[in-house]
């Protein structure tokens, strides 16, 4: 038997036929997968109340030899994250996190750290964490895990290593920083203060559990926001459709 039991976060659910559900879920062992839950809409035992959006479940599924669709046997609810459904801003941010994960991690691309990031982000959001801070922490870490980390080590113009002296500007075309001698601040090259660069370094490379305690000031948030907006639009080549609900 090719059956696996794994913690999974439910990313999308779609009605499939008369009583089945088409489920997209994210696992730590196999990344994002798609599966069919036979009788999932009516089941009171195998899938009772656990195939719901954003829920963390223990999912038993069978790997398919051909095609993308797996067969879901049963699941058990671990955490429904009730805080995510308590208001529209939490629902929107959770949806945004899911959409970004889908873009950065196509079907079957495995990353345990991304699973942990998504899980911990949902846990923090569930507990009522500040949505603007959470969004930045998630974007920075997810982009880094997806291979789009902003290089904050040296100036892209003169090559001088950056050790926290003065402001820098972000260059979206290269995903790097440049010192003020080489570049000017503008709308497409927003500036970052030394403390912001330091904080960004930490959140890009530190797992979530340690980052959530490190405070980002309002000033840092206002500096990082436009940087990630430009960085993500340039790297992903589109604007996330859930982003408009966060504004």
């Amino acid at each position: 038997m090719n059956t696996h039991i794994s913690p999974a976060i439910i990313m999308r659910i779609k009605e499939f036929g008369e009583s089945d559900l088409l489920v997209t879920f994210f696992t730590s062992e196999r990344g994002r997968l798609k599966g069919v839950a036979k009788g999932g809409r009516k089941s009171q035992k195998r899938f009772a109340n656990c195939l719901d959006l954003f829920c963390l479940t223990s999912l038993e599924y069978e790997l398919k030899r051909k095609g993308d669709l797996h067969f879901l046997h049963s699941c058990k609810l671990i955490n429904p994250f009730p805080g995510l459904r308590s208001d529209f801003s939490s629902l929107s941010l959770a949806s945004y996190m899911i959409e970004l994960t889908e873009i950065l991690f196509p079907l079957g691309v495995t990353d345990k750290e991304m699973f942990e990031l998504l899980k911990n982000a949902f846990l923090t959001l569930n507990e009522g964490g500040r949505t603007d801070t959470l969004r930045i922490l998630f974007e920075a870490r997810a982009m880094a895990l997806g291979g789009y980390k902003i290089n904050l080590d040296k100036c892209c113009g003169c090559g001088r290593p950056y050790a926290g002296e003065g402001r820098v500007v972000f260059k979206r075309s290269k995903g790097v920083i440049a010192c003020m001698k080489c570049e000017q601040e503008s709308k497409i090259s927003p500036g970052l203060g030394p403390d912001t660069v330091k904080a960004l370094r930490i959140i890009q490379s530190t797992p979530w559990s340690k980052v959530e305690d490190s405070p980002l000031t309002d000033e840092m948030i206002s500096e990082i926001k436009p940087v990630f907006k430009l960085h993500m639009e340039y790297r992903i080549d589109r604007r996330l459709k859930t982003a408009k609900y966060l504004e």
Partner: peptide, 14 residues
């Protein structure tokens, strides 16, 4: 009582 249904209800309450 789904995630989206609950969020809609919370939104309407406000």
């Amino acid at each position: 009582p789904t995630t989206e249904g609950e969020a809609t209800a919370s939104f309407l309450v406000k």
